[in-house]
Structures are given as structure tokens and as C-alpha cells.
């Protein structure tokens, strides 16, 4: 299955530094303007933006359309949630088991699912994702199952005399981790390794004949993506204060995939824009009707039919065309 997606991904662009500073300034100043509800939405956008960026490493850059990305998000969320409920407090120390377990899971699953590609890859990721969902559902003694879930997780203790129960403080913690992750992912993408994953996406056979171990490239990229999804899952645990098996379900993986597609796969900024659009739309639509999944399905279909490049992808294409005309 040669993906059309691959051909549509626009080239990496560099925004002028003024634009970057403006964006950063907006993110820093917004919490002082927004209502507490608006601030909570913005925090959610950053957490899911990070989650969507991590999926973009696979979908956009490596060309692997994974249907179980929620597994890593959910497993990390559960790990930290369970440890917090058993009395472990320090946020920074909790990051270690949370992320480690997701990396381990990705390392294990990757061995199985990266043996196949195309349609098989898609099916197998979906199947193993639903297995973990079923496990979380049935393993009541550990996860609380579906009825109870895992409640009362509270906010992180970061070891400083700053209360994370203050929404602004929590937002800034999320913002710092978000920006750190963004820069790190960007660094990976721009590194020689990043070039090699894009090369593998574009032409695996050629990369192999150049002596690259494309299996290993995909495997590492799969594990990296899982690590950032885990960080998003941990932040979500503290943000929501409650986890249920739903966090591992196909519908969650699809929710994130939609963010990547609507924002523009392979653009890194796109998935964050996608997260913002979807979360704001979800809140708007949910005030009028309970049929949000139906609208999500419709957006999915419209996006695939008419706006395959996504928002940022389309803008980039337009921009590149303009630049091309000027030259």
C-alpha cells in the first residue's frame, strides 16, 4: 500500500524568529487573560498537542499509520495514576516508571508489528491496541475496570513550594514540558536520524541498498513516538484526575489521528493546530448536542475527502507556491 500521504507532505519550513517569539509570547500571556474554563481548555490543547505530535513522528515522518497510539498514552497514565494512589508523590521521579513502561511496551510490540507493513501493520496495531484496552477493562484489581476507573489522582508534586492546584501554575508546568518536547522532537527530525526516517518513508528499498537498516530506523522511531505519547499520558492523568480504560481505546487513537490529519501530517506544528481545532470544536458541539462522535466521524470523512493536507499542510503549500511565483 503506497501511501498518497507521502507525496503530499510539504517540505520542512522555517518560520521567521519573530513569528516564533510571538507564538511563545501568546502562550505565556494567554493564561492571564483567559477564564479558568478557557485556561483548562488551553492546557488540554497542549497535552493533546504533544500527544498528536508524537503520533506525527510515526504517521507524518516515518509513514507508519498506527492505530494503537493510545496504548502508550494510557499505559503511562495508568502507571503513574496507580503509583500516585499508592502514595508515591514526586512528579519527576514518577516520570521515570511512566515513560519507561511505555518504552518497554513499544520495544516489545515493535518487534511483532514492524515485521509487517501496509494493511497488515494497520490491522495488527489496532488488534494489539484493543487487547490492552480489554486488559485494562478486565484487570479490575489494578485499574478499577470500567465502572470505577482510577479516581482521585490529584496534581503533581514538583518538589518546589509552588502549588499545582493553581491552574496557572499547572499550565506553566505543561507549557514548559510541551516546549521542551517540541524542541526535542524537532531536533530528532532534523538530525541525520530524522533524515533517515523520512528516507525510509519515501523509498525503503533505496535506503536499504544504501546500507541503512530500515527495520531498526522504524523500530527506534516507534519507540521514540511512544515515549512522548507516554509523557502526554502522564500529564493527562494529573490534568483529568481520573483515568478509565477509554483512554486506551481505538476511539482515543482515532481522536489523535484525526488531530494529526486535520492539522497536517508531517508538519509537527500541524498536529498541535489540529488538537486546538478538535478540542474547541468538541466543546462547541457538545454544548448543543451529545452526538460529538458523529460529528467527529463527519469531520474525519470531510478531511480525508477534501482537505488531505490538513490546515498547516495547505497553508504551507500555498506559501511555497507564493514563494515559487515570486522567484
Amino acid at each position: 500500500m503506497i501511501s498518497i500521504l507521502n507525496k503530499l507532505i510539504p517540505a520542512e519550513t522555517n518560520l521567521p524568529w519573530l513569528a516564533k517569539v510571538t507564538m511563545l509570547l501568546i502562550l505565556v500571556l494567554l493564561p492571564f487573560i483567559l477564564s479558568s474554563y478557557g485556561l483548562s481548555l488551553l492546557t488540554k490543547v497542549l497535552i493533546f498537542g504533544l500527544f498528536a505530535m508524537s503520533l506525527d513522528i510515526l504517521v507524518g515522518f516515518t509513514g507508519l499509520v498506527s492505530f494503537n497510539h493510545a496504548s502508550f498514552f494510557g499505559v503511562a497514565a495508568y502507571t503513574v495514576g496507580i503509583l500516585v494512589n499508592r502514595g508515591f508523590e514526586n512528579f519527576w521521579l514518577l516520570l521515570i516508571p511512566g515513560i519507561a513502561i511505555a518504552l518497554l511496551l513499544a520495544g516489545l510490540l515493535g518487534l511483532l508489528i514492524l515485521r509487517s507493513s501496509g494493511a497488515y501493520f494497520l490491522m495488527i496495531t489496532l488488534a494489539f491496541g484493543q487487547m490492552l484496552f480489554a486488559l485494562a477493562w478486565k484487570w479490575r484489581s489494578l485499574t478499577g475496570g470500567d465502572d470505577d476507573g482510577l479516581p482521585g489522582i490529584g496534581r503533581p508534586e514538583i518538589g518546589l513550594p509552588i502549588s499545582m492546584w493553581n491552574e496557572q501554575n499547572f499550565y506553566f508546568l505543561v507549557l514548559i514540558l510541551f516546549i521542551g518536547s517540541f524542541l526535542l522532537i524537532k531536533k530528532v527530525i532534523k538530525s541525520p536520524f530524522g533524515k533517515s526516517i523520512v528516507g525510509t518513508r519515501e523509498n525503503e528499498l533505496r535506503m536499504q541498498s544504501l546500507g541503512y537498516n530500515t527495520w531498526l530506523i522504524k523500530y527506534i522511531s516507534y519507540i521514540i513516538a511512544a515515549g512522548f505519547a507516554a509523557l502526554a499520558g502522564i500529564l493527562y492523568t494529573y490534568f483529568n484526575g481520573f483515568i478509565s480504560p477509554q483512554e486506551l481505546d481505538w476511539s482515543m487513537s482515532g481522536y489523535i489521528l484525526l488531530m494529526v490529519i486535520i492539522g497536517g501530517a508531517g508538519t509537527l506544528v500541524g498536529p498541535v493546530v489540529g488538537a486546538a481545532v478538535i478540542i474547541i470544536l468538541q466543546n462547541l458541539i457538545s454544548t448543543y448536542t451529545e452526538l460529538w462522535p458523529l460529528f467527529m466521524g463527519l469531520i474525519f470523512i470531510l478531511c480525508v475527502l477534501f482537505a488531505r493536507d490538513g490546515i498547516v499542510g495547505s497553508l504551507l503549500k500555498l506559501y511555497q507556491k507564493k514563494v515559487g511565483e515570486m522567484k
Binding site: 501511501s3 498518497i4 500521504l5 476511539s251 462522535p293 458523529l294 474525519f300 470523512i301 480525508v304 475527502l305
Partner: peptide, 22 residues
């Protein structure tokens, strides 16, 4: 465009789920 076709059926899965719930 096979991949896009799969994504399309995925969109329909959401719609069918919600219609059944409705």
C-alpha cells in the same frame, strides 16, 4: 488511495457507533 479509503471507513465507524447509541 487505499490508505485514505481505510481512514474513510474509520470515520464511518464513529458515525455508525454514535447512530446506534442515539
Amino acid at each position: 488511495r487505499e490508505l485514505d479509503q481505510v481512514l474513510l471507513t474509520f470515520g464511518f465507524a464513529y458515525i455508525f457507533m454514535d447512530v446506534a447509541k442515539w
